[in-house]
Amino acid sequence: MSELSKVPVTVLKGVGEAMAEKLAKVGLENLQDVLFHLPLRYQDRTRVVPIGQLRPGQDAVIEGVVSGADVTMGKRRSLVVRLGDGTGVLSLRFYHFSNAQKEGLKRGTHLRCYGEARPGASGLEIYHPEYRALNGDEPPPPVEQTLTPIYPSTEGLTQQRLRLLCQQSLSLLGPRSLPDWLPDELARDYQLAPLDDAIRYLHNPPADADLDELAEGQHWAQHRLAFEELLTHQLSQQRLRESLRSLRAPVLPKAKRLQAQYLANLG
């Protein structure tokens, strides 16, 4: 495909006029914008954690069987679902729910959930987890193969939609789809990876990626983008300085009357 900076986001599946306006609010007008819309952080959904191993504050994927679902009337009305997997039990708490949702979480339902475990009145709880029911007659679907990116967003633009758009854009990323300003010699001297490799990695880090390294901006893929950003900034400043040097100052004619007028006014 040609340069992605010339391809509007409307070529992506599911992007009409309304969605294009939402994307424009976060600066996404073409496919190059989408690819450089990098994640803020990542979630690890690549493995299922036994409930008995969960710790407060931990984000995790869990699986279990519903042992009960009740509506409680505390400070706020909520649906509390008890989930167990043989290693432990926790509660899923929903403050916003429908009767259909309650019926879908009846006793014996096998669930896979994702969320943050927090201390609750009766042990660990997950508030409004993402979840899906699993068919007990079939093997559970595989977990994610890469870390899950969390993108900068705006109202009406979900993380799921952003991930789908980024994956579509990545499928169109070719070796010459993005301008790579680094000369081969410079990239080799500083051991910098190709730009498209860095972009692909940051949108889909493998399961064994170092989350701390990514969070601190110390990963090689982040270094590659930072190096180019700093280089282009320096080059733009150099071009600006050269442009200013090329401007000649206007010649100011010698004043004829102002000097005498100034001296006369001194008294």
Rank of each mutant, 00 (worst) to 15 (best):
N99K: 13
Q168S: 06
H203A: 01
Q234C: 13
L170H: 10
A198M: 05
G217H: 10
E116K: 15
L182E: 01
L162W: 11
D208M: 02
L178C: 08
D208A: 12
E144M: 06
G217R: 10
F97N: 03
Q160A: 15
T154M: 04
H219G: 02
K102N: 01
C166R: 08
A215V: 00
L164I: 02
W220S: 10
L173C: 06
A215D: 13
Q234S: 11
A187Q: 13
H219P: 03
Q168R: 09
F227E: 01
A207C: 03
G174T: 15
L162P: 07
L162E: 01
H96V: 13
E216L: 14
W220E: 07
L92T: 05
H223V: 12
R107A: 14
D189E: 15
Q218P: 00
Y201G: 01
Q160D: 12
E144N: 10
Y114L: 00
D180R: 05
Q101S: 05
G108E: 07
R107T: 15
A207N: 04
L92N: 06
L124A: 04
I199F: 07
H219E: 08
L124H: 10
T232A: 02
R132E: 15
L192N: 02
I126P: 03
D208W: 06
D184W: 02
E103M: 11
I126G: 01
Q168N: 08
W181A: 13
R224I: 11
N99M: 05
Y127N: 07
E216M: 11
T146W: 04
D196G: 00
A187C: 08
T232H: 09
E116S: 12
A215E: 13
C166Q: 13
S169A: 15
C166W: 00
W220Q: 11
P139E: 03
R112D: 02
W181G: 12
P141T: 09
L172G: 05
K106W: 06
R161V: 14
L225S: 03
D210L: 03
A193F: 00
K106P: 00
P183T: 11
E125D: 11
G156P: 12
L134H: 07
S169N: 03
W220Y: 12
L211M: 15
W220T: 10
Q167F: 02
E185N: 09
A207E: 14
Y190A: 12
R176P: 00
A100S: 14
C113K: 02
Q101V: 04
R161E: 11
L105R: 04
